[in-house]
Amino acid sequence: MKVDMKVNGRAVSGEVEGRTLLVDFIRQTLRLTGTHVGCDTSQCGACTIHMNGEPVKSCSVLAVECEGAEITTIEGMANADGSLSTMQAAFQEHHGLQCGFCTPGMVMAATALLKENPSPSEAEIRHHLEGNICRCTGYHNIIKAVQAASGQDVQPVAAE
C-alpha cells in the first residue's frame, strides 16, 4: 500500500507492506540511514525520531500509521545553514558520544526533553533518557552535554 508523509520537511511517499516498520521505511525506502536499529524489543532507543514533534521509537510504529505525519530524523536536526544544532554541538563539545551508534536516538530524545523542560536537573535528564541505551559512554558525558545544551553551567571536560 502507499503511504505519504513529510520527512525532514520534505513530502515523501512510498509503497509499504502492512507489516513494514517506520524505521525500515526510513532506512530502506528513504535511505536515511542515520536512524539506527539496536534491538528487536523496543528497548534501546537507537531508532528514536520525532513524530509530530514527539519522540517516538520508530521500531514500534508501522509505516502505515504515519500517513500524513510530520517526521523528523537526525538528518533533519542541523540548523538551516548546515551547522550542528545546539544539542548536536553540545554532544561534540562534551564528548557525549563514542561509537556514535546510539547517538542519533540520544540527540532526538534529548532535544525533545528540552522542549518540554528547558532546564532539567541531572536526575530529570537521567530519567528522560532511561529508554536510550548507550554502551560506550557510561552516560556521564551525555548528561553533561544535555545540561550544557540547556544553557546550564557544566565543568569543561578533562579538568575535573
Binding site: 536515511l32 536512524t35 539506527h36 537526525i74 536536526m77 561534540q92
Partner: peptide, 11 residues
C-alpha cells in the same frame, strides 16, 4: 563526531 551527529556515519 560530525558525521555521527548528523546521521551520515557509514555503518
Amino acid at each position: 563526531d560530525i558525521r555521527f551527529l548528523s546521521g551520515t556515519g557509514q555503518y
